[in-house]
Structures are given as structure tokens and as C-alpha cells.
Nucleic acid binder design. Structure first.
Lengths: 251, 251
DNA sequence: TCACCCTATTGGTATTACCATTCACGATGC
DNA sequence: GCATCGTGAATGGTAATACCAATAGGGTGA
């Protein structure tokens, strides 16, 4: 396709009111086609060299644009010829969301108290939905994590890992993709601060016992299909866990 | 500075187990320093040419990494010498979050029903907090938007714009930065679908009346400092507005 | 017919050379 | 001495080119 040969780029666009940078033009090109439905998940973009010609920019500009959209979980690049290779449209916001939140929690763009507050309402929602929708397999997955946490031989990291997986299992059982991705992202973004907080505790074993009790209580309410109780217990659990790490509050 | 002349990069890292791409190494370099606190909001990164030398990659690789972090709202580039120019660490997730959500709503990575469900719990939180915290100036801002919506001469876009600004004003008065940014992002991500839905209505004037009534009711509850009632009204409002656009449900 | 290689395609990377913008510092004039 | 203006250096923005690496698919030989 395309018999034209493209005479070359216009390096200096004098008197061009288009203050848009070259790579932004490419981002717009893609975004426009995604928003209009012309590009859907699974679509393959033109090769970088072709796209550069079409938009009228250089290949580095195209690549910078691809990075931008890749960082949002919209594109995915892989080398090689044929159907496999090329830059394709994905729809995987999970990773992007997690990285974004983690950085902004570290930069304190999102204070820990604000994040926790949002986490409470999200997990209330997830827990309530999961209580209504979870099938036996999903319930078994939750129970497995809770029971793994009863092992006294676990390190703090391992314990916290199962803790996270329990909450993620609830979110996934809820069947709300945005709530699930946000819950995972928030949890992951707070992982390092939480671990620091746990290590700083002088009575880890007592806290560990409290966490176990709370998790068992939440699980029981879910298994008993008591949605409101489960949501209340989750909220209480999250708030209590946050309160135990007092030094986190002013972050 | 720079007495050295840079002998050149190692273009082929044969037998290098580092499967990481060059630009990813740069992203890691920055992320590591952000997470460790070495880089904070306001910090200036080394110049692209210098950073390329430090990490041992080419300048295009550095630029691709900068785009990645820029897309997450972590970096900001501006040309020029001295203190002004250069690539600096920001902490502005708002834009990034909005763009991410908008794309993934368009790609149906996040179904409209899921997004609406999350929006309900976030705005319940925002409304409750705003009811407790809003000062008179913020209340006046909300009222201004509601009263602007009473003008019969507004186009659908204008009406919807004030609608959005009312909800944003509530979120900002709540004082939770994550909730605010998420609310704005969700609202913006649904803007085009909502407008399409409003245009498709055959009884716009009736719906407009309903929306006005609901907004006034929410505002009254906030001004009266009745937090629970305000939250309930907001939830009812959002659910009703979503239900009115039936064709949106299977998106 | 099947296995193998070879070539075209595609992203990944480096290098070089400019342009455009901005600030800091020094020269210049008062 | 002080203010003003200009110039150069630093920095991101962009293009052009050349090559590497990986992959698929077709062509070729056994």
C-alpha cells in the first residue's frame, strides 16, 4: 500500500501556529482513532516508519509517542515480522495504574490518609459485591490466603503478601474491573510504606494476632453472605491497620 | 564541567543478561531515586545528555524514558538554560489519570457500569466530606454552578459542563486529593458517552428538569450540613442519570 | 513431503547534527 | 556605580541515518 514516496519531513515549521510537539501529534493521531472506535483492542498500528510518514514526523517522535501510550497501558510493542510483531492496541490499565499511584504516593501527591480513605470506600464496595457474587471457588481462594496467614513461620513480607492477596481476591470476586484495578494499585502503592511500618512495630506478634482475627471475621461474614457486616468489618479492619502505624499518618 | 569527551556507548551488549530495554533502565534510574526520596517534587534531573552518559544509554533512550514518566505525571520538561529549563520532578497525576481512564473507557477495559459503580462510592465519600468541611466560598461555588444550570438557553454541552463543575466543586471541597482526581477523571472519561446519551434523548427538557431538581436537592443537603442525606441524594442522582441513558449500559 | 535456511519486516538503539528557547553573565552606556 | 542590553552557553525538541535483533513466512534443497 501507499505508492507515495514522501518527500521528507519539514524540520522547521516556520510560522506554524501548531505549538504541539511532534510526538504529541502522534499521540493525538492514535487517541483520536481509539476514541472513535477505529482502533480497538487487538488492532495493529502501522509500522513506526510508516506512521512517521503518515503523521509527518520523525521516527524518534513516533517512538516517544508510543512510550507515552504504552505507559498508559494502551499500546504494546514487540519486534519481529508478520502478525506477531508490531505495535498493537492492548487494554491493560492495571500495571499503568499501579505504577502511577506508587510514584505519586512516594511523591506525596496523594497523602496516605487520603489514599486510605479512598481505599476504605473501594473495599467496602468490593466486599459487599463479593459477598453477593463470589462462587465457591473464589471463596476457597480467599480462605486459602487467610489460613496461610495463620502460619507462625511466615516473614513479615510473606504475611503481608497473603494479606494483599486476600484483599485482591475479594476485589476480583466483586467483578468490578475498575474497583479491582484501583484496589490492587492502592495496595501495591502502599506496600513499601506498610512494610516499613510493620518492621517498626515493637509488638509485631500482637498486631499479627489482631490482623488474623480481623481477617477471619471478614471471611466469615463473606461466607455467611452478610454483605453489610462484611463491609463494616473491612472498613474497621483497614482503619485499625492504618491507625496502628501512627508514623504513617503525616506522609 | 565535562572535560571528558565520552568515548561512546556500547551499542551491542553481547551476552548481557540485562533483558531490560535501554529506556527502561532510565525509568528505573529515576523511579528508584523517587521512591528513595532522593528526588522530590521540584528536583531537577540531569540534562538529557548527561543522564544518557550516567546510565550508559543513548539520548533517544533517555527521551523515551522521560516520556514514560511524563505520561504518569511524574516529570515535566521545558527548554532553556539555567534554573528554569530542564526536566523536573512534578507531582501532577490529574492529567495522567484522566487520560488513562478516558482511553480505557473507550477501549471498554472499564465497562461503563463498573465505572459508574465506583463513581457512586467516590462521590458519596466526597459529598459526605464536603458537607462537613466546605467553607462558605466553596459552597458559593457549588451554588453558582447549580444556578447556572437553571438557564434555559444553555446548550447540552454547556449544561453538562456546569453539571461537571458542580460535582468537581464538591470533590474539591472534600479535600481528598485522590478522590478529587479520580472523580474528575471518571467524569471526564465519561464525558463523550454522556453527551451522546443526552443527544439521543427524545425528552431532553424533561430530563433537564429532573437534573435541576436533583442538583438543587443535593446542594440543599450540603448547605444544611446533612451529610448522610447529601450522600444518599448524590447516589440516587448518579444512578438515576445513568439509568436514563439505557443504551450506555452495555458498553 | 519435510526440514532448513534465508530474506524481508519490525521494533530497539546509537550517533550525529541542527533548531529553538531561556537564562546568566558580561559589556556597554548612562 | 548602576541599570540595560546583548550575546553565548546550556537545554530540550527534532530529524536523519545506520545498524542490530528478533520474528515470520516463503523458498530451497534433501
Amino acid at each position: 500500500m501507499c505508492g507515495m514516496k514522501a518527500a521528507g519531513y519539514a524540520q522547521v515549521m516556520s510560522s506554524e501556529v501548531t505549538s504541539k510537539k511532534a510526538w504529541e501529534q502522534v499521540v493525538d493521531w492514535v487517541e483520536q482513532r481509539v476514541l472513535s472506535g477505529e482502533l480497538v483492542v487487538g488492532s495493529t498500528l502501522p509500522a513506526e516508519r510508516d506512521l512517521a510518514l503518515r503523521v509527518g514526523v520523525s521516527r524518534p517522535a513516533v517512538r516517544e509517542a508510543v512510550r507515552t501510550l504504552q505507559a498508559s497501558g494502551v499500546l504494546r510493542s514487540s519486534v519481529g515480522a508478520g502478525g506477531s510483531g508490531g505495535t498493537t492496541v492492548t487494554g491493560v490499565p492495571h500495571q499503568a495504574l499501579t505504577k502511577l499511584l506508587r510514584m505519586h504516593v512516594a511523591l506525596a501527591s496523594f497523602p496516605a490518609t487520603d489514599v486510605t480513605q479512598v481505599r476504605v470506600v473501594l473495599e467496602r464496595l468490593s466486599t459487599s459485591l463479593a459477598t453477593q457474587r463470589a462462587d465457591s471457588e473464589q471463596l476457597a481462594g480467599m480462605r486459602a490466603q487467610v489460613e496461610l496467614m495463620d502460619d507462625d513461620g511466615l516473614s513479615i513480607e510473606e504475611f503481608n503478601g497473603h494479606d494483599t492477596q486476600f484483599h485482591v481476591a475479594i476485589a476480583e470476586a466483586a467483578g468490578n474491573r475498575l474497583a479491582t484495578d484501583l484496589t490492587v494499585a492502592i495496595r501495591e502503592s502502599m506496600r513499601d510504606p506498610i512494610l516499613e511500618g510493620l518492621y517498626a512495630l515493637d509488638d509485631w506478634k500482637r498486631v499479627r494476632g489482631l490482623l488474623r482475627t480481623e481477617h477471619h471475621a471478614v471471611l466469615s461474614a463473606i461466607e455467611g453472605r452478610r454483605a453489610d457486616e462484611a463491609a463494616d468489618l473491612v472498613e474497621e479492619h483497614i482503619r485499625a491497620a492504618f491507625a496502628r502505624m501512627s508514623w504513617l499518618h503525616d506522609r
